[in-house]
Simulated assay, not measured.
Amino acid sequence: MDGDFSVLDPDDVEQEPFAMCDVRHRKLTEALGCTEMRINTATLEPGEATPPHAHEGQEEVYIALTGGRVEIDGEAHDVPEGGVVRVGPEPIRAVRNDTDDEIHRWVMVGAPPVGTVEDFGNTVLPGEESP
């Protein structure tokens, strides 16, 4: 074994809001030493959602730790606890918590790791020009 691995408790990484919204997340990429992907956790309070967006050149996988809802190209999809969603670079996506009393938690993985740990780069909001 070459020792190229990491074990991390996400609670050891400080939460902060995404740059484009108030949804809290933990940036795990650097803490895990990832070089070929970006990984975050996101916590959505009741009524919160990420803005609809796409990532040019980056595929994403969302893992629902608690269940939740993903909106892809305007269509809502319920995701069960433990469910996994793959979204290619082009579709407009958002993660939503439409409940009144539940907290939704997600793991979000993007590859290749466009941008930087601090600046997700190539995030495209509908109606805006590509970076």
Rank of each mutant, 00 (worst) to 15 (best):
M1E: 03
D2F: 03
D2P: 05
G3C: 03
G3T: 06
G3W: 11
L8P: 02
L8F: 07
D9F: 04
P10C: 13
P10S: 08
D12I: 10
D12M: 08
D12K: 15
E14V: 15
E14S: 14
E14P: 07
Q15I: 08
Q15C: 08
E16R: 13
P17H: 11
P17A: 12
A19T: 14
A19N: 13
M20G: 06
D22V: 11
D22P: 09
R24M: 15
R24K: 14
R24P: 07
H25M: 15
R26I: 12
R26S: 12
K27Q: 13
T29G: 01
E30M: 00
E30T: 00
A31G: 00
A31E: 06
L32I: 03
C34V: 03
E36C: 01
M37V: 02
M37P: 00
R38H: 07
T41M: 09
A42T: 14
L44Q: 06
L44C: 09
E45G: 04
P46D: 09
G47A: 08
E48W: 14
A49W: 06
A49H: 04
T50M: 06
T50N: 10
P51V: 05
P51L: 10
P52V: 06
A54P: 00
A54N: 02
E56S: 12
E56G: 06
G57Q: 11
Q58E: 13
Q58V: 09
E59C: 03
E59F: 01
E59R: 04
E59H: 00
E60F: 04
V61S: 01
V61P: 00
V61R: 01
I63S: 01
I63V: 09
A64S: 07
L65F: 04
T66N: 05
G67M: 09
G68L: 07
R69E: 07
R69K: 11
V70A: 13
V70M: 13
V70W: 10
I72M: 08
G74T: 03
G74D: 02
G74S: 00
E75N: 02
A76S: 07
A76C: 06
H77V: 13
D78E: 15
D78M: 12
V79A: 09
V79Q: 07
V79H: 01
P80V: 11
P80N: 08
E81M: 15
E81N: 15
G82E: 04
G82K: 09
G82N: 06
R86A: 03
R86Y: 05
V87I: 14
V87P: 02
G88R: 09
E90N: 04
E90M: 07
P91W: 09
R93D: 05
R93Y: 10
R96K: 12
R96E: 06
R96V: 13
R96H: 09
N97W: 02
D100A: 13
D101Y: 04
E102W: 05
I103Y: 08
I103R: 10
R105C: 10
R105V: 13
W106P: 01
M108Y: 06
M108S: 08
V109F: 00
V109D: 02
G110P: 04
G115W: 12
T116N: 08
E118V: 13
E118N: 14
N122C: 10
L125C: 02
L125K: 11
P126G: 00
P126T: 04
G127E: 02
E128L: 07
E129F: 03
P131K: 14
P131L: 15
